[in-house]
Computed example of a mutant assay.
Amino acid sequence: MAGIYIHIPFCKKACHYCNFHFSTSQEKMPAMVEAIKKEAALNRNYLAEEIATIYFGGGTPSLLKEEDIRQIIGQLKMLFEVAADAEITLEANPDDITETTAAAWKAAGVNRLSIGIQSFFEDDLRWMNRAHNAQQALNAVRTAQQLGFRNITIDLIYGTPYLTDAMWLQNIETALALGVPHLSCYALTVEPKTALAKMISTHQAEDVDADKQARHFSLLTERLRSAGFEHYEISNFAKPGMRSRHNSSYWLGRPYMGLGPSAHSFNGKNRQWNIANNSLYLASIEKGIVPFEEEVLTNTQHLNEYIMIGLRTSEGISVSALAEKSGSNLVEKVMAAAAKHMQRGHLVLTGDRLTLTEEGKFLADGIAADLFVET
């Protein structure tokens, strides 16, 4: 089973924290839709497996015309063997969700919405430079539910400078009251070359507080666990049976194809990524050439990716799988590095599985880096 990701590189506004590839000019959007459909045809032999998931990301895919979404899905179904029960996700901003748009998306085949709410507080949304307001955030979820969407996830951001513990808990409670079955919650990250990075460097904004972020993470995990959510990946929480099938495939190392500028693809051995430039991407596709760079992963890179991604999930990493991928000598090195984290209470070995404890989850990236095998 494989997945297809479609990157729609357009937004109404530039959020202060975002470092994804996008343009606030939508002039090239019609040409981009045609280029993405053409790229799919050019890459029709990239995936041999049945397509289990299709994911519209960005950028802001909800800016697309409803007919564009229908045509892209139709093109993919014509070119690939798409499972009858395929999960088809559309990332949507709250201000784009109306009864008309939601109904059209559903009719086009979209069966899962990922709504970029980030916060239910007006001041927080203005600080992030989001395009929607707090009331639109509430209305978006309710409208989607009324139109028959049951598989809905919302994004929330914690650890922002002006988000108090009480406000963060209220954000969580608001999400729970809405009855959404999945939440993706992210600590605010200061990425290079973003407006936020510049604001912090020029003292126009406070830097992130790691202690507060850790506290918010703890409040989040405790409250969602008590509400019956599975904490199945560091940033993702789902009611039983409502995990993201698309993202879960990434974490399981399954193949996927990315369409659109900056989109990544993985066929099990090689990783490739399209050029992150809309004009150059369009010009290249017009000539029948997919503009990408490629990296052939070494065995060590495969192993380290397995450690990095596996530790982020509730299933953790399998010691026997490590042995199969690397040999007993390297496993001994990995387990020796893991021992100190087990002593600190950040890792636990249960049978064949090495998993992060609740305390260790907030330190996941650093712990994984300690376990990496050197070439």
Rank of each mutant, 00 (worst) to 15 (best):
I6Q: 05
I6H: 04
I6A: 01
I8S: 02
C11N: 12
H16M: 15
C18E: 05
F20Q: 07
F22C: 14
F22I: 11
T24R: 00
E27T: 14
A31W: 09
V33H: 09
K37C: 11
K37F: 07
K37G: 12
E39P: 02
E50V: 11
A52P: 15
P61D: 03
L63C: 01
L64Q: 10
E67G: 04
R70Q: 09
Q71L: 11
I72A: 04
G74N: 02
L79D: 02
F80S: 02
V82Y: 01
A83I: 13
A86G: 06
E87L: 09
E87P: 08
L90I: 03
L90C: 13
E91I: 08
A92I: 05
D95K: 10
D95S: 08
T100D: 14
A103R: 10
A103I: 05
W105T: 00
W105Q: 01
A107N: 06
A107Y: 04
A108G: 05
L113G: 01
L113R: 01
Q118N: 03
F120A: 06
L125E: 02
R126A: 13
W127R: 15
W127N: 11
A131Q: 05
H132I: 04
H132R: 07
L138N: 08
L138R: 14
G148I: 12
F149D: 11
R150Q: 13
N151S: 10
T164G: 00
D165R: 13
W168M: 03
W168T: 00
N171W: 09
T174S: 10
A177E: 08
L178T: 05
H182Q: 06
S184H: 10
C185P: 13
Y186C: 03
Y186F: 14
V190F: 00
L196Y: 08
A197V: 09
A205D: 02
A210R: 12
D211T: 07
S218P: 10
E222N: 14
A227G: 00
F229L: 08
E230H: 11
S235F: 08
P240I: 01
S244M: 05
S244W: 02
R245N: 05
H246W: 05
N247Y: 09
W251E: 00
L252V: 11
G258A: 02
S262F: 01
H264V: 09
F266L: 05
F266H: 01
W273G: 09
L280N: 12
Y281I: 12
S284Q: 01
I285H: 08
E286H: 11
K287L: 09
G288W: 00
P291K: 00
P291D: 07
F292M: 15
F292D: 15
E294S: 14
E294K: 11
E295V: 03
N299D: 14
T300Y: 10
H302G: 00
E305H: 00
I307D: 12
L311H: 08
T313V: 04
I317K: 04
V319R: 14
V319W: 14
S326Q: 06
G327E: 07
S328Y: 13
V334P: 06
V334N: 12
V334G: 04
M335Q: 05
A336D: 13
A339H: 15
M342W: 14
M342K: 15
R344I: 00
T350C: 09
D352R: 07
E359M: 12
K361L: 08
L363R: 13
L363T: 10
A364W: 13
D365N: 13
I367A: 04
A368C: 00
A369H: 15
E374A: 15
